[in-house]
Amino acid sequence: MVQLYVVRHGETETNHQGRINGFSTDLSLNDAGKKEVTFLANNMDINEFDEVYTSPLKRAKETAEILNNGVHEIKEDNRLQEINYGIWDGQPSAEIRDKYPDAFDENLFTLPNYIKYAKDGESFAHVYKRVNDFIKEMATKGDKKILIVCHGFISRAFYKNMTHVPDISSIIQPDNAGVAKYRINNGIPYVVYYNRVRDLDYTAMGAPIHG
């Protein structure tokens, strides 16, 4: 049985300022983000993990380094990098929503049609595929506990691929330094928890997801 712990990076200034935080906004953590991740690190035992993977973006790598504390080799994987919002990256979210209201859902998340307006934006379908490819690879690892550091949209894509929820708009974005835990047992995915913000060792049993 493979256990996957998917962590969203800590806060950056673009998060704090309410800007669109995609692939091109490659910033380090701010002070609040470092505190969030350090708090998480103090509530986990990195020695219990077998492998650590991270998005290559600075905010994810820095989060992984704090959590890892020099114990494991940190493996960068481009499939974990945040969605590329094209020319929308780094722009104030409120201004973009006011200009293109039909590209956002009721929770103020982008809809798949956003690429009509955001030049060079990455499609949702492309993100789902690369995340699913990563999940399939992890499912072959055997009995391992794996820490994965990524981003908000990527965390939602993990949940969508694991549960086969048809509409990603029904999935909230995890908080900065929020954690999701999944199990894959004989090819069947289980969601143990989603968007926990403290203890990676929480052991409540998850429900199997079929379909």
Rank of each mutant, 00 (worst) to 15 (best):
D167K: 12
N43P: 10
Y182L: 08
A41E: 08
G142Y: 01
G33R: 01
I115L: 06
M44R: 04
L111G: 01
K141C: 02
Y182S: 01
G22D: 02
E51T: 11
I148Y: 10
G121Y: 03
F109C: 06
C150K: 01
K34P: 00
N42Y: 05
T163P: 04
G33I: 03
P112D: 05
G90V: 08
P56Y: 12
R8D: 01
I87D: 13
V197Q: 14
S24C: 02
V197Y: 13
D120S: 09
G142A: 00
A204I: 14
D98F: 06
D105S: 07
M1H: 06
K35G: 00
I171S: 13
E65H: 11
E137R: 08
C150L: 07
R156W: 00
D120W: 06
K61H: 11
S155P: 02
I115R: 06
N185A: 07
R97T: 06
D89F: 05
V191K: 09
L111F: 07
Y114K: 06
N78D: 15
K116Y: 01
P112V: 03
H151G: 04
Y202I: 13
I87L: 13
N161W: 05
Y53H: 05
V6S: 00
V52S: 05
S24Q: 07
Y159C: 02
W88P: 01
I184D: 03
K145H: 11
L4F: 09
R196H: 15
E122G: 00
V2S: 04
A94L: 10
D199E: 14
N78Y: 15
T140H: 10
D77W: 04
Q91K: 15
N69A: 15
F49R: 07
D133I: 03
F49M: 07
G18C: 12
I168N: 05
Q17L: 15
R79L: 02
E137T: 04
A125Y: 04
G18L: 12
Y159A: 00
E76F: 02
D50N: 15
V52W: 08
H151K: 09
K144A: 02
I115Y: 05
T140N: 10
G10Y: 10
Y53D: 00
L80G: 02
F49C: 03
Y128N: 05
E13P: 06
V6L: 10
K181I: 03
L111Y: 08
G10M: 07
E65A: 15
I148A: 09
Q173K: 14
I20K: 09
S28T: 04
H126C: 03
T12C: 08
V192A: 13
V37W: 07
P101L: 09
I87C: 14
A204E: 14
A94I: 10
E13Y: 14
S155T: 09
I188W: 12
A177I: 08
I146T: 11
D50A: 06
V179G: 01
N107S: 12
L4M: 15
T54F: 10
R97I: 15
N107D: 09
Q17E: 12
T38C: 00
N21C: 14
A64V: 10
K116I: 03
F109V: 02
E48I: 11
N107M: 07
G86C: 10
Y159H: 07
I148K: 10
I20T: 09
M162Q: 02
M1T: 08
K58M: 13
V192R: 09
V52G: 01
M1G: 07
